[in-house]
Nucleic acid binder design. Structure first.
Lengths: 196, 196
DNA sequence: GCACAAAACTAACGCTTGTTAGTTAATGAA
DNA sequence: TTCATTAACTAACAAGCGTTAGTTTTGTGC
């Protein structure tokens, strides 16, 4: 009667997920084959299906893991009573932190979410839209308080989120400039502007 | 002895290229099939090869056409003797203008250049790196003149280029906010910052 | 050592892909 | 008319894909 086994099974699955994130990042979701992934994890392609149910499931776990992290952080920040400026700085720094610590996952989630299947695709997009709306609300509060320039809040949100993604380019050659320097420059530029 | 024909041939080829850009933008390069492209242009997949030599050739023409436009504009701007701030604003506005007027091409070039084959891939990357270096030089001049904050110029370049790509998200639903408003907000945020 | 489930394997299926080969109808110059 | 050229067609190939089926090995609890 099916006793639980407690072998290395959960580790193995986690290991597959990590390798998948690396391959997805490097080659893209579509261009990554199950045979490549199998080779990296030291087994045959068919054997992967003892641990996962489909290729898309791997992508799904990556995307929603990242989405959950961002949602959790924002939820915690919204409860805070600091001013809009500090909140926006915290958000920018958290995005940078996520890109630095979970580079593969965030990169794949940013680029390959289109390959999610329904109903998860719709769910993912709804979560993202909600996230952007909540950021826009924070910016609107800053504008109302006279702390931010009267730009359209949604434009500001997308500008900031796009700008933060420039970190993706630095992750590869992060020797030349320190992560802290990049993060500080980014926060400065986005909040105070490039001009003196 | 092979007299030139002057049929509709060049138009047909140009039409294929336009449809390809649209499909690449919507579905991505890999996910776009020659049979889809054939259907859109009203012929069979095999017939396309009377006008083009490969699928990648279509991508190549798109990418290098965009690269040429950006290079030409920068070359012209460098000859100008306006200050660094005006130059950077002109660059930002030109990127926005390109995204608005050649949306499909710029979008595809930004995302799908990875699928170029050698030696064009290397050539494309070299051109892009050179372009970024020339932008960084302009920013460095601004810093030296005390007009820009002393951020690392390459960080500033990538931040600005990434931020400008947020326009991609607006192109779809451009009814809510006017293009001019978005462009002005973007220039303001990047040069003067979000904070008042 | 026996039973049994987890996890590996081999083999193959069904489908899609970009592209080629060979053929046919239309067009325009000589 | 003749004849070369263009541009369409049909058919098919060779390769690669994700996935399934069926089988064998491995490891642990009793």
């Amino acid at each position: 009667m099916a006793r639980p086994k407690l072998t290395t099974s959960p580790n193995r699955r986690h290991q597959i997920l990590e390798q998948a994130a690396g391959l997805f990042k490097t080659n893209g979701f579509n261009a990554t084959t199950m045979r490549q992934l199998a080779e990296q994890t030291g087994m045959e392609a068919a054997s992967l299906y003892n641990h996962i149910s489909s290729k898309e499931e791997l992508l799904r776990e990556i995307c929603f893991s990242v989405a959950n992290d961002f949602n959790a952080h924002l939820l915690q920040l919204e409860a805070d009573d600091s001013c809009s400026s500090r909140k926006m700085e915290a958000i920018i720094r958290f995005h940078i932190h996520m890109l630095l610590t979970k580079y593969n996952d965030v990169y794949v989630s940013n680029r390959d979410w289109k390959h999610l299947k329904e109903p998860w695709l719709t769910n993912f997009l709804n979560q993202r839209k909600q996230y952007e709306n909540r950021l826009a609300a924070i910016i609107q509060q800053g504008i109302d308080a006279g702390k931010f320039k009267p730009v359209h809040p949604h434009v500001a949100v997308l500008t900031i989120l796009s700008a933060v993604r420039s970190i993706e380019y630095w992750q590869r050659s992060k020797k030349a400039i320190s992560s802290k320097q990049i993060a500080d420059d980014l926060v400065m530029m986005l909040l105070k502007g490039l001009e003196q």
